[in-house]
Design a protein around this nucleic acid. Structure first.
Lengths: 261, 261
DNA sequence: CCGCACAGTTGATTCAGATCAAGGATAACA
DNA sequence: TGTTATCCTTGATCTGAATCAACTGTGCGG
């Protein structure tokens, strides 16, 4: 597990739970000031650099905790090296598997990450006599389960373009919500993932991801001022392509899958 | 929601929780006799026929509960009708989404099913003052999440033959465990699913599923005395084909994907 | 300033699985 | 005992995405 590293890159710096940026969204959000004090005493922060492993698949996992800053990917890897990202975690999301000694997947920092961690045993003790903590963990786990099942539809049934559109839509929504701007055309997404990480999440190859970015760009749905920055030019088209249909009314329009067509 | 139907087809018949066949595996398995009495008073049974809807996607869901007998599939359907099965539930598994008013997916009985149900509101009340019930629900939800993520690997990265092999392996393991027989060659699986239901679960078409059954049969990995009964003839080969590698040692052997090869 | 590594793009080709299209088997039923 | 309906299988063809293979930045270290 990682060393403490470039703190300077992290936006927030705090020590006490009451000053925590994820205080009212994380697993501790239902905890009273009194209960929070116990968590405060037990927690410790750790920072990770992009690519660094936070939890190793199949390894004994003795820490659990919340993402405070950055983006974390959960992977499962097959014997022959094929890899699938099974979860993408953002600040306030919970990492680790309480009530299990071995991690069923590995967690990798995609960006500089700060984690708020607990020793697993200690966390389970606290959980034991903190119904509000356990309730929140149950809620978050149920939400994760719903998200995982949504992703199963994407992986099992969607085409490459639908996969990418769905993914961008999620990021766009997240960005809009966080920045408190309307969920509409013009949103600029700063991708925290390489093409490879996107491919691993979408169940595609890196080449296909790149090509689908090209398709979206050529059709004016997005623009790419930089490979890592995506500007949504036509949100409705993106919805349409994602096969989601946000509100029912939407006029399909001619769409050009390749340059020549 | 369904009517009470052909009870005669169900193996078990009981009224009180203490006689329940899933008593020590279901969500209530940590509950004390005292706590069980409260559940006993609140529960009600309902039976469903194959194809019948237990919970409708997007509909208000006011019942939650456990599968007592039979097999239930959870589906998500896209606007254009593409469908993905996102969960397969067996006796003792929990159905429904506490802490949410709308069901994110629909639950369909694949076989004759008996459910042990609670009104959602009532269940949430009981949950409130039953830490052992909530603890068990958290555990089960965490396990479901792990299973969903395993399935994401299957959907995103595995080939058709690997998908079917993985699926049969899971059913074989289940069958062996339930019937208390060794997990070895000769296990006979009675498929509770049509080819179509299998296809929806594996993210394939019905034709591809059928063809992959053919491949397994031609290679002597399984035999099909009946389309709905699969006998495992070579468990090691099945592991190999699933891309799982149970214990590391396994000698790859020539494998014939098509009839002529 | 060069060389190298890394991320991304683009093109040509292949192939696994979807789609389209018949058939065959079994069971329910008139 | 045909009649219809389901479920399953099998064959021919098509196609979307993987694979194989360059090639283009862009940044970094010497």
């Amino acid at each position: 597990m990682g060393e403490t590293t470039n703190l300077a890159e992290l936006r927030f710096s705090h020590d006490r739970c009451v000053d925590c940026p994820i205080r009212n969204r994380a697993v501790c959000s239902y905890s009273s000031p009194r209960q929070l004090a116990e968590l405060d005493a037990a927690k410790f922060y750790r920072d990770y650099e992009p690519g660094q492993e936070i939890i190793g698949e199949g390894e004994p996992c003795d820490a659990v905790g919340s993402v405070v800053e950055g983006v974390v990917a959960l992977h499962r890897t097959m014997e022959d090296g094929r890899r699938q990202t099974v979860g993408l975690l953002f600040p306030s999301d919970f990492v680790g598997r309480p009530l299990r000694t071995v991690a069923p997947y590995d967690a990798i920092a995609l960006t500089p990450v700060r984690m708020c961690l607990f020793h697993r045993k200690r966390f389970e003790e606290i959980l034991q006599h903190n119904p509000s903590l356990e309730r929140r963990l149950l809620e978050m786990t149920l939400d994760e389960l719903d998200a995982a099942r949504d992703w199963m539809v994407l992986l099992g049934r969607k085409t490459a373009i639908e996969k990418l559109a769905s993914f961008l839509l999620i990021l766009a929504h997240r960005t809009a919500t966080l920045d408190n701007q309307p969920f509409d055309d013009g949103i600029a997404i700063t991708l925290p993932l390489t093409r490879e990480a996107i491919a691993e999440y979408l169940g595609l190859t890196i080449e296909t991801v790149s090509r689908q970015f090209g398709v979206l760009k050529r059709n004016g749905v997005i623009s790419l001022p930089d490979p890592r920055i995506t500007v949504i030019e036509d949100l409705r088209a993106l919805f349409y392509l994602a096969g989601e249909d946000p509100d029912q009314e939407f006029e399909p329009r001619p769409f050009r899958p390749a340059a020549n067509a």
